[in-house]
Amino acid sequence: MNIRRGKEQEASELSELAYRSKAYWGYSDEFMEACRDDLTLSSAYIETQEVYVLEDEGSIKGFMSLEKDAEQEQWLLGYLFMEPEAVGKGYGKALWQHMVEVAQKLDIPVITIHSDPYAEPFYLSRGAKRVGEIASTVFPGRILPLLEVEIEKERSVE
């Protein structure tokens, strides 16, 4: 297993992975099509944000990103998606741990997560806390879990 920075030329491949991953939860075709823009990464996004790809057995199994929301002065978990056949194999936990390590290096104290309802149990099991709800940017009236995870400072080895 290898986790590395995402490459600008992977924007389309990562976007399609995000789409397949979201569809894993059984959402309707209409719902998925409405989400397509939100699940699409640009090469500029990959270049300017903290995007990391997990590879194993010669292929991409998942990816995650941290993005700085300058308006809100906070960091968001922008994406954390797995190939459907990779779910339950520890890749999500590995990406989560990598996210924590990146946050520690960047001295990020808290990461905010606008969670899909189906993904909330995973985040809660990793130490995130539900702090409220947030309106969906895609579907008026749809409410999503709003989570936060506090990042412990990296311990220095003396």
Rank of each mutant, 00 (worst) to 15 (best):
A135I: 05
K7H: 04
E133I: 06
V87W: 01
W75G: 01
L80N: 01
S65I: 01
D37A: 15
R5I: 00
R142V: 13
A18C: 05
L54A: 10
K61M: 07
E154Q: 12
K61Y: 04
E16R: 13
R126S: 15
I151H: 03
L39G: 02
L66V: 01
L146N: 13
R4L: 08
G6C: 09
E57Q: 15
L124Y: 06
V53L: 11
V100M: 04
Q74C: 10
E10M: 10
Q9H: 15
M64F: 04
A119M: 01
W75S: 00
E150F: 08
A18S: 08
D29L: 15
D69S: 00
I60P: 05
E133Y: 11
W25S: 06
S42K: 08
G58N: 11
K61Q: 09
G26S: 10
D37Q: 14
E30Q: 13
K61N: 06
K89G: 11
Y52L: 02
E8F: 06
P140C: 05
G78P: 03
F63C: 00
I151T: 08
K93W: 01
L124H: 00
M64L: 09
E30G: 11
V102P: 00
M1E: 13
S65V: 02
Y52Q: 07
E83H: 05
D116C: 00
E120Q: 14
H114C: 07
S65M: 00
L147A: 01
M64R: 05
P117H: 09
E154T: 14
S65F: 01
W25F: 05
E150S: 15
Y91H: 07
A86F: 05
I111V: 14
R130H: 09
L76G: 02
H114Y: 06
S136K: 05
A70E: 13
E13R: 07
L147N: 03
Y24C: 05
D69W: 05
P84H: 06
Q97A: 15
Q49W: 10
Q97T: 15
G127C: 11
E33H: 10
